[in-house]
Amino acid sequence: MCSGYRIELLMSVWLLTGCHHASHDQAAVTTERTSNGVIASALVPGMIHGASSSDPRAAQYYENPQAVVEGKRLFSQYNCSGCHSNGGGGMGPDLMDNQWIYGDRLEQIHQTLVEGRPNGMPAWGDKIPDAQLWALAAYVRSMSLPQTIAANTGDTPSQTPAPVPREAAQDTGWSPPPGTTNDYTDVIKGPQ
């Protein structure tokens, strides 16, 4: 039942309103009237086109086990690992948590890779073939999947990346306020 309304449901999460609100035209969601008539804006980066994948090229990289394996290889070949380690971060932010500064849908990650980002993420658009960028995006998205995390043994994560499920395209992710840290874990216990 619900699956037919998947997009609407996610939009409602995003707008922080209830489940029971009318479906809407996807093209017109840059500003959105909520149930009490207030105009909500698209605060989540890249979400102006709604919650579902808007780039048709992204589709084939979901549910694609080869893509994530290929992405893993490219991740070290292009020195992504130098800044992001095995997903745990270093010079660049960690990618294996559920915090996304610039969005976690494959076309958002792809866009991050193509354009670069202001705080020190290089632009790769004219350096890496597009198909490889998509594979990299899939691998990056896979790092924080529960299946990938579950497959981690020891302290070298992201070695067995699970394919990215299509539902992942509808997760808005979460990111902490800039400059704050320690948000990777729900609960940290003090020293015993």
Binding site: G89, G90, T181
Partner: peptide, 17 residues
């Protein structure tokens, strides 16, 4: 603590994590 890193990756921050 200060960087955007994840303690589950022992190789993060050039192995210091």
């Amino acid at each position: 603590v200060a960087g955007p890193v994840d303690p589950r990756d022992g190789s993060a921050a050039l192995g210091f994590i």
